[in-house]
Design a protein around this nucleic acid. Sequence first.
DNA 1: TTAACACATGAGAAGTTATTCAGGTATAGT
DNA 2: ACTATACCTGAATAACTTCTCATGTGTTAA
Lengths: 133, 133
Amino acid sequence: MSLRATPYNALVTAPTTQSADVCEVACVHPEAVVLAKSALPDERCATEATNFLKLLGDTTRLKILSALQTTELCVCDLASVVGISESAVSHQLRLLRTGRLVAFRKEGRVVYYRLADEHVTTLIRSALEHARE
Amino acid sequence: MSLRATPYNALVTAPTTQSADVCEVACVHPEAVVLAKSALPDERCATEATNFLKLLGDTTRLKILSALQTTELCVCDLASVVGISESAVSHQLRLLRTGRLVAFRKEGRVVYYRLADEHVTTLIRSALEHARE
DNA sequence: TTAACACATGAGAAGTTATTCAGGTATAGT
DNA sequence: ACTATACCTGAATAACTTCTCATGTGTTAA
């Protein structure tokens, strides 16, 4: 996960010149293509959404987030719960903070992290449900 | 995305020897740690869930899946809709097939892909909703 | 049979990611 | 002031991902 919002394939994707004829490239079902194309989320939303999903799509981060579903925890605690180094946790927390998936409060030298969003809980629950079936 | 189910950090993660004292490593809030630890999803579920979320966490795949929410489409169509090469689409479809996010039917030499699962639609909708707010 | 088409796949290149390690900063206690 | 603690961060490295290009497979049409 990069901290910048620029996705890998933003540079690679063909420049979609929205001319009159949508189906310039060879395609089999023009009407279906037009329909599907109009249903695509706009670029910004798609990027935001994938950045969000990317953050959930990592075992370490999913564990961190799962742990935070029960209670707020400090970095030390999280390292202990997840079973990795504090440094690794800290790096991941930075990504989660940047993506606004977690919030935190400082108390002296201890930093308590918590989930920032209901969506996180919902999505994790859905994904786990899907995984179990 | 690898096709194998072995995650990157399965080999790196410290071996959690589940001895009597859960908090062997230094940690600040033992009770919170125990609580959070018991709430962690088991390893297999966490892996499956993250594999699923990983598949959603890519702009190209999200576009493919979004397109398939409207109607079934062949590889050609998808390439046209998303704006990338057929080969790239095909590679991504393989991952989505392996992860059982899409299903397909063959008709002559054309292969029609469709979403395999309600969860996919739900999750995409949630993620986009989160992205927009 | 031959050619064209729709799709799949392997190899390789270029980019991205997650960890460790070696330092940092800020706060609390002595 | 000095030390320990809790946390953060940059650099480096190994692993992973996603594309392109070349090629292979199966099906239809001439």
